[in-house]
């Protein structure tokens, strides 16, 4: 017998005895029923309108110490990035090819590493920032949803010390249940190999529970809604 069969056999043997559940008594083992989720009713409340969601995202971002900007055009976003590049003294940034990244990073005035078809990780290590698109922004938690397909791979959003996210207005969604529904709708059975909810810059409290940003990933996270 394989270990797979051994383990599954022990599980089946164990489950022959119906479990006792505190407050419910002995519960007979019925077939697993499809469960209807009410998570949206329990989780933190999110407003209906775009404005309410922007404000919630903005408040969450501020609490997480992430930068958030709502800019009204791609030109404004590009100008914002150019300012940032100058202010921070960026020499090289990494990005991937996407509809927003292409137009906004076109004349940033610094060297650019494109990750699309693979890249040298030592080269990415020298980049001052990673600029990515995303799948969605989650108002409820202030999170950025990225995947290995939407955001230039796995490392681009976490290796450089500064992560810039470019999002469209319609990418701001209400809550986590909506985010998972969106993933299923977008990718179906062909999910990317990595899906990540990024909630604020990299952080740690491992030393005396004192908050420190930039533990291993980006010390700075900036989110731009371009609309």
């Amino acid at each position: 017998m394989t270990e797979r069969e051994n383990i599954l056999g022990r599980i089946r043997e164990a489950l022959r005895v119906p479990a006792e559940r505190h407050g419910h008594g002995v519960v007979q083992n019925s077939p697993s029923a499809p469960h209807e989720s009410h998570a949206s009713d329990w989780l933190p409340v999110v407003g209906e309108s775009f404005e309410q969601r922007v404000e919630l995202f903005r408040a969450n971002a501020a609490e997480l110490k992430a930068d958030f900007h709502l800019v009204d055009s791609r030109e404004a976003a590009a100008a914002h990035l150019r300012e940032l590049a100058t202010a921070k003294g960026w020499k090289k940034v990494a990005t991937h090819t996407g509809e927003l990244t292409r137009s906004i990073c076109a004349d940033l005035g610094v060297d650019i590493l494109i990750t699309d078809d693979g890249y040298d990780v030592n080269e990415m290590e020298t980049c001052d920032a990673g600029i990515t698109e995303c799948d969605a922004l989650v108002a409820q938690t202030g999170s950025v949803l990225v995947t290995s397909r939407s955001a230039g791979g796995r490392a681009l959003s976490v290796l450089p010390p500064h992560h810039i996210v470019l999002a469209r207005r319609d990418q701001l969604i209400a809550d986590l249940p909506a985010a998972f529904a969106l993933l299923k709708q977008t990718y179906g059975a062909g999910m990317p190999s990595m899906i990540s909810f990024i909630t604020g810059p990299s952080r740690t409290g491992d030393i005396e529970r004192i908050l420190v940003l930039g533990a291993h990933g980006p010390k700075h996270l900036a989110v731009l809604i371009v609309g």
């Binding site: 969450n60 609490e63 890249y119 190999s193 990595m194 909810f197 604020g200 952080r203």
Partner: peptide, 28 residues
């Protein structure tokens, strides 16, 4: 666990690097 709204990174891994992806391990 930690008094947070959501932890910094919540990441789902569904396999090794897929065709067309920029990076990721060859084996998972």
């Amino acid at each position: 666990g930690a008094g947070q709204v959501l932890t910094g990174y919540n990441t789902m891994y569904g396999g090794p690097r897929q065709p067309g992806e920029a990076d990721g391990p060859e084996e998972f």
